[in-house]
Amino acid sequence: MKPARFDYHRASTTLEAVALIDDLGEEAKFIAGGQSLVPMMNFRLARPSALIDIMHIGDLDSIQRDGDALVVGALTRHRTLETSTDPTLMGGFALLPTAARWIGHTPIRTRGTIGGSLMHADASAEWCMMARLFNAQLRLEGPRGRRTVAADDWFQGMFSTAADFNELLVEIRFTTPRQCGALAEFSRRHGDFATAAVAVAFDVVDDRLCNVGIVIGGVEGVPVRAGEAETLLEGASVGAVDVDGAARSAAAGVAPMESEPREAAYRRHLVDTLTRRAIHDALATGVQ
């Protein structure tokens, strides 16, 4: 399980990184923490001709507030987000540190980055779900300048994103803070990628739920929003949330990747349960 040969380059600025990859072509790849890429390289399932190490680009490791938005540099490590619990910084995004705790284990979180996770685009990855839940804007730096892609447009299929090969994800801007939020996940073994995961967030205004977001991860090829369930909850009174209805709707709305009928049925059941639990937990965060 040794990787194939590759060239190695270290970029110290975003511009340098982009220029390098533009020059090296599609077979080259950026590497940040490498916690998803390197296992695939060790199995020789990924064999980039060159790696451009972006970990030494100085200014992409930061968490900042910009009005309502939370702006996270792409090289921010999972561990940094996990331990960023200052309410003045994280207000409205308290779910993010909680979500970080679900990512693998400590030695993975010390190396892995939020940008790397979004570029890898595993449908069960916490940051992919959070990006959709908090309507993230993903800023890319490319040879023709910068552009921004909304999270809803980011995921193009399994492990596939809207970024072109020569574009570098530099910043994730979570745009819609919410008072209440929860993430419910299930994996058979602790710390593994989720078999299924459901994230819920909403505000409570005048005792009613609004800005409801529900994102389901790990069941389809990309993280998906449970639109019908969101609609069901929108405007619901806190004391009379139709949790059953929302959970059933979320479960009915997914198209599990598993072709085996029993496994597919199980995934739906799991979505039902996790939706239920995430809504309950999110309501509880509002009570506090």
């Binding site: 199995f43 058979r188 073994r189 602790h190 710390g191 593994d192």
Partner: peptide, 13 residues
């Protein structure tokens, strides 16, 4: 073919 699919229990199990 990997420890991601062959699930050896951890301390948490």
């Amino acid at each position: 073919g990997s420890f991601m699919s062959y699930l050896v229990p951890t301390a948490a199990e």
